[in-house]
C-alpha cells in the first residue's frame, strides 16, 4: 500500500500545487520521485510528530493541502492533541497518513502496533477515517481526499499486501462501502488490511456451501448507513473484521449504529484484537493466527455461528 501511496501522491502533486508532503523521518527512498518533482513541497520533519502535525495545520490554514506521514502510532497517538485541536478543531484539510496499521509491524513490538487509532481518531469531530483494503483503494482514497476539504485520516497497511481489486476503483466515494462479492448466508464487513482475510474466509465458506457477501468497508467515519441497514435487513449474520481493538473501532461503530437504529444486535459478530498488548515476537501472520484474525479462523467462527 505504501508504494501506491507514494506513487499516487506524486501524480496528484504534479497536478495540484497545493499538495505538500511531510514525513516523520521514515520511508527511505519512498518519496524520491515526489522530492525530485516537487523539491519545494517535500519536508522531512524529523522525529518530531507533534511539530509536524501543528505545522501541517498551519500550512492548511493558508490554503495548502499537507499530508503527514509516518508509522501509525507516531502519526496518530503521538500527536493526538495536535490532530484534535490544530487540525480538527480548526477544521482544516490536513490528511494524516499512517503506515503499518494494526499488527502490520507486529515484529517491531507494541510500540509500533496500532490497534487503538481508529478509536481515537473517529471520536474527533470533523475527522473522516478511511482504512483502504488494498493498494487500489489507497490510490482511490487519495484522489477522493484531494477532491474535498476536510481533515482525513488514512490508515494503510505496509507494502506487498495482496490486491483484491483487479484495477483502479473508479467509483470510490468516501463513506460508501464497496461490495466485493455477493452471497446470502453471511455478510462480512471488512475494514482496512483485513480485506484479503475476508476474501479468503468467503472462499472457505463457499467450499462449505455457505455463500458470503464481502464488503470493503473502507470508510469507518462517516459510516455507510445504507449499506449497514441493508445488511442487517437481509442477513442473519453480520460480521465486522478489523485489525484493531474491539474497543472503539469499526465493530464498535457498527454496534453503535445497530443499537441506535433498533437492529437485531444478536446478528452481529465482531472480530478484532483483544484488550491486551501483543508482546511476543513474530510477524503479522503469526500475530493474526494467535489472535484469530486469519481467513480460516474467521470462516470457522462463522460456521460455528451459522450452525447454532
Amino acid at each position: 500500500m505504501r508504494n501506491a501511496f507514494a506513487d499516487e501522491l506524486t501524480r496528484l502533486g504534479d497536478a495540484d500545487p497545493r499538495l505538500v508532503m511531510l514525513s516523520g523521518d521514515i520511508g527511505n527512498r519512498l518519496f524520491d520521485k515526489f522530492r525530485a518533482a516537487h523539491p519545494g513541497r517535500f519536508f522531512n520533519c524529523g522525529v518530531a510528530e507533534a511539530n509536524m502535525t501543528g505545522l501541517a495545520a498551519g500550512l492548511a490554514m493558508n490554503g495548502l493541502r499537507p499530508f503527514t506521514y509516518t508509522i501509525t502510532p507516531f502519526v496518530t497517538t503521538r500527536c493526538l492533541e495536535q490532530i484534535r485541536t490544530d487540525v480538527c478543531y480548526h477544521d482544516v484539510p490536513v490528511t494524516v497518513v499512517a503506515v503499518g496499521a494494526g499488527l502490520a509491524y507486529a515484529g517491531l513490538g507494541p510500540t509500533h502496533h496500532a490497534c487503538e487509532d481508529i478509536s481515537f481518531l473517529r471520536s474527533l469531530p470533523n475527522m473522516k477515517v478511511i482504512c483502504p483494503g488494498d493498494a487500489w483503494e489507497v490510490r482511490a482514497a487519495l484522489r477522493a481526499v484531494v477532491g474535498q476539504d476536510k481533515p482525513v485520516y488514512i490508515r494503510m497497511g505496509k507494502k506487498g499486501e495482496p490486491l483484491v481489486h483487479a484495477g483502479p476503483v473508479a467509483d470510490f466515494e468516501i463513506g460508501k462501502a464497496i461490495t466485493i462479492s455477493d452471497g446470502d448466508a453471511v455478510c462480512l464487513l471488512s475494514t482496512g488490511n483485513m480485506l484479503p482475510e475476508a476474501v479468503e474466509a468467503a472462499k472457505l465458506l463457499a467450499g462449505k456451501g455457505r455463500s458470503a457477501r464481502v464488503v470493503s468497508f473502507h470508510t469507518v467515519k462517516p459510516l455507510d448507513e445504507a449499506c449497514l441497514a441493508e445488511a442487517f435487513a437481509k442477513f442473519d449474520l453480520v460480521v465486522t473484521l478489523e485489525e484493531h481493538s474491539l474497543i472503539g473501532g469499526f465493530g464498535s461503530a457498527v454496534a453503535e449504529y445497530a443499537v441506535d437504529h433498533g437492529h437485531d444486535t444478536l446478528k452481529l459478530l465482531r472480530v478484532g484484537t483483544p484488550d491486551a498488548f501483543f508482546k511476543r515476537s513474530g510477524e503479522q501472520e503469526y500475530a493474526r493466527e494467535e489472535l484469530g484474525l486469519t481467513g480460516h479462523q474467521i470462516a470457522e467462527r462463522v460456521l460455528t455461528r451459522l450452525s447454532r
Partner: peptide
C-alpha cells in the same frame, strides 16, 4: 514466533 525478544525492548 512467540519469543520474548521482539525488535524493540518489551515491558
Amino acid at each position: 514466533d512467540g519469543g520474548k525478544l521482539a525488535e524493540h525492548p518489551p515491558a
